[in-house]
């Protein structure tokens, strides 16, 4: 179980890194140029918002990005991104196969095609549903208190994952009702918000960033689910 999850996770992580550099990294760098003020969008308004971004002493979003590879250490920065993308998907992979094992514990068989569905479902739980409340943030985005957002994030992942599993494997109306309630709850409660907008980058860049992050996530999760499902089916055959 452990090995299958790790192999599928790392392989998916490498694909994730590849797609990251093909689609996402350029927007992160662009966002940072607006964040630092190297680029200013919409001169009149931009000045005010850029300053709001950098004055804000409380901390959320005012991180200093100078040591993240601006000065010639792009290789280091990108290497770390590959490493951590591999790592995070290895973690996802372990959780995915733990889910497979749980399903089999209750007598459900997992094949490669089930793996794809599990991967897509897990993408919804880990990325899409949290993104409904907390859209993927371009660097420079200023958002509500980090701790509160992380709590909402974990709660949403847990509720959505459980809700989808109950929806898929439940056998009676009561279970499906509970599933629906779990899926809806995080969004009824609502993600922590600031109520004001401080974005320094153009909305087009932020929108493209969010869409690409979700697209890449879906692709990588689907592949990971398929791969993990194949390995799982082979090992338990």
């Amino acid at each position: 179980m452990l090995a299958g999850g790790l192999i599928a996770g790392f392989a998916a992580g490498l694909l994730g890194a590849l797609l990251h550099f093909a689609f996402v990294q350029e927007l992160i760098l662009l966002g940072e140029e607006y964040e630092t003020g190297a680029l200013v969008h919409f001169a009149g308004v931009g000045e005010g918002t850029a300053e709001a971004g950098h004055d804000h002493a409380e901390g959320e979003g005012a991180q200093d990005h100078t040591d993240e590879g601006g000065d010639g250490s792009a290789l280091m920065r990108n290497g770390l991104t590959v490493l951590f993308t591999g790592l995070i998907y290895a973690g996802y992979g372990l959780i995915l196969v733990a889910g497979f094992a749980l399903a089999e514990h209750f007598g459900r068989q997992i094949r490669a095609q089930d793996g794809i569905l599990w991967g897509i479902g897990a993408f919804v739980a880990f990325q899409l549903a949290p993104a409904m409340g907390l859209a993927p943030e371009l660097p420079g985005t200023i958002a509500a208190d980090l701790g509160a957002r992380q709590v909402w994030w974990w709660g949403t992942v847990l509720a959505t994952g459980t809700g989808l599993a109950l929806l898929a494997y439940g056998r009676n109306l009561l279970v499906w009702v509970v599933a629906g309630a779990l899926l809806a709850a995080p969004h009824v409660i609502g993600a922590p918000e600031l109520g004001e907008f401080f974005g320094s980058a153009p909305p087009e860049v932020a929108a493209a960033f969010s869409a690409r992050v979700l697209g890449v996530g879906l692709a990588v999760w689907a592949v990971m689910g398929w791969l993990a499902g194949r390995i799982w089916a082979r090992d338990t055959a």
């Binding site: 990251h20 996402v24 990294q25 992160i28 901390g59 959320e60 979003g61 991180q63 990005h65 040591d67 993240e68 920065r77 990108n78 770390l80 991104t81 490493l83 951590f84 993308t85 995070i88 990325q127 949290p130 993104a131 907390l134 859209a135 993927p136 943030e137 371009l138 660097p139 958002a143 980090l146 957002r149 992380q150 994030w153 992050v213 979700l214 890449v216 996530g217």
Partner: peptide, 22 residues
């Protein structure tokens, strides 16, 4: 995890996976 070193190292991945980053 919010240690500065971890945050900086994982920064781009965190943004690109939709984690609440900072």
């Amino acid at each position: 995890a919010q240690s500065a070193t971890l945050h900086d190292a994982a920064h781009d991945m965190r943004h690109a996976t939709g984690f609440p980053c900072h």
